[in-house]
Design a protein around this nucleic acid. Structure first.
Lengths: 213, 213
DNA sequence: AACTTGTCCTGTCATGCCGTCAGCTTACCG
DNA sequence: CGGTAAGCTGACGGCATGACAGGACAAGTT
């Protein structure tokens, strides 16, 4: 599918080269989760990977370029989130379970990739189209199916609400909660209680009514 | 209230010094809204202010320090957001109007300060306590009163929901929507339709029922 | 084994920003 | 007018950036 891995000056990377490249990406990932984005320097990444800055610049135009690489990889991964909604039922107790699973899965994905997602979110907010696209890919993996679910369930209730808007709002909420869990605890919401609360919101949004006991 | 303005090396700043300091802050604000945070350099800010980098370091320890200054100023400003909820009614049509005003006011505030809020949000997500505190101050200016409103209104309905959690979720949603409006348009939600949709969500969360026609 | 080819890495260099300091200029005050 | 503190900057060592040429290395060829 994707073409061969290439260096900035057009050479095709071989076995050893790809290993080095990958090690640089891994170290960058590590750096991102331990230092502020603004302070991540090429030289630190290179040192951690046991190589030199010049080597880094062989494979990536700059830090941002390498970050995009990691982000794209993550976006591929996010396709798996579809399964949290696709083909699931939203009826009765099963529906609430679906909601819980969705919240659980989404938060887990975000936590696993929080460092890179922070940077993607920043880039998107700053208007960078590449980061925006990646962020949408991640969100859409859930927003798409969820919007369908809302549409399917609102036939019974009223049609004044835009399914895309509801699904979007719910995903935004999940993303925000995932990125800023600490805000909720500072509001007195215990970590343990966060998921049920979010699951309730999601169920309410999709089913349009309170869940059964 | 606040002590005198001081330089990094302890001198008290006089009239001229404060002017220079303010000009630097203004230029930094400007830079933040035109370039990615990562690329904002001291030298650029100084140049724009018609002064030298050394002068910048007289008043601020580094870029982050100056950003915190701007952010704190904005946080003071955010106190005014309280009025959007405090003492407002959530009954019937008036209630829905309250909801609309809240969404309107919050989005306007965010748009006005979007550049600095992006950085604050990033800092908070990265675990920086100073940025986290500032972000909470802004959010709490609305979340506090809103939580009260939820509590006051849920007496009539059921008590299974934590008011703080609901208020927090709503504020998170508003913040997320404000920061990533483009995401919603990419979901097919027109700018014109965004506010009504958010207002509906807020009303639903607070009043626990659909708004009257 | 010498040769060839293409990949892979690094030493080195010019450039530019960072952060500090000494010292010059300016403003204020008695 | 002289003293004092505020205000500003040139200059500097240090470090990151980004480009390049050339050496090391692996693998196949003759």
């Amino acid at each position: 599918m994707t073409g061969q891995v290439r260096t900035v000056d057009g050479r095709v990377a071989g076995r050893r080269g790809q290993e080095t490249r990958q090690k640089l990406l891994d170290c960058l990932r590590e750096m991102l989760s331990t230092s502020p984005y603004r302070d991540v320097k090429v030289i630190d990444v290179a040192r951690m990977a046991g190589t030199s800055p010049a080597t880094f610049y062989q494979y990536f135009p700059d830090v941002e370029g390498a970050v995009l690489e990691i982000a794209e990889e993550m976006a591929e991964d996010s396709a798996g989130l579809k399964e949290l909604v696709d083909g699931k039922s939203w009826a009765g107790k099963t529906g609430y379970a679906t909601s819980e699973d969705l919240v659980d899965g989404f938060l887990a994905f975000w936590r696993k990739n929080d460092a890179i997602l922070r940077v993607v979110t920043l880039g998107a907010a700053e208007g960078d189209k590449r980061f925006f696209k990646i962020r949408m890919k991640v969100l859409n993996s859930v927003a798409g199916p969820l919007s369908e679910a809302v549409k399917a369930n609102q036939g019974k209730t009223d049609k004044s609400v835009d399914p895309a808007a509801v699904a979007g709002a719910l995903i935004s909420l999940l993303a925000s909660a995932a990125e800023h869990q600490k805000a909720f605890t500072s509001w007195g919401v215990k970590v343990k209680d966060l998921k049920p609360n979010l699951a309730l919101q999601v169920y309410l949004g999709v089913a349009g009514k309170k869940p059964p006991k």
